[in-house]
Design a protein around this nucleic acid. Sequence first.
DNA 1: GTGCGGATGAACT
DNA 2: GTTCATCCGCACT
Length: 201
Amino acid sequence: MPKLRPDFYTNHDVIAIARLLLGKVLYTNVNNCIVSGIIVETEAYHGIEDKACHAYGGRLTARTQTMYSQGGVAYVYLCYGVHYLLNVVTATQGHPHAVLIRGLQPLSGIEAMLERRKMDKLQPKLTAGPGALGKAMGIDKQLNGANLQGNQIWIEDSGMMVPSAKIVASARIGIAYAQEHAALPWRFYIKGNPYVSKPNS
DNA sequence: GTGCGGATGAACT
DNA sequence: GTTCATCCGCACT
């Protein structure tokens, strides 16, 4: 299967990219161990004008600078001091848009994922939720800024077309502090898929 | 320098 | 439903 090409990521419509990433296949190669899964849930973060975005108002810090990169790299950050969350940086350099990957349906390397999560059998909670899938995929700070054309982390087009009737748009999770931006329907998921994070409704 | 809260998940009552 | 793990950026002293 072909990797998504650089121009997929440099599009300025981060909302459209968040939708298009559903059904694509995310790979990581960490410690010589390749694992993969189908992306089933995403959220769009819309740059400096989005109060929920880390780069809101043009904030530029050691943490957020990755988001200002040219689209097509990974933005990984530590949440609550405990979980590494994976984002895909989009748009062109200087435009800090990103898509958070929130849910993944495991495809290959399931044994390795189970080991990382210290689980003994496949259950949805293995990779449902951004912190859970980050851990299962072996994602940590090392992958922050990694190019998605490289051999550590990348996304392929499976050719699988998700019918729009199966795509649900809803409010993003865990961003109540973003006030009027909290209700924007910028979370997308595949209807009925068990690897969508919790409420799954 | 200090204090606080966050794009969460697991283990409790 | 509640608590806690435990790091980093940021608004204050």
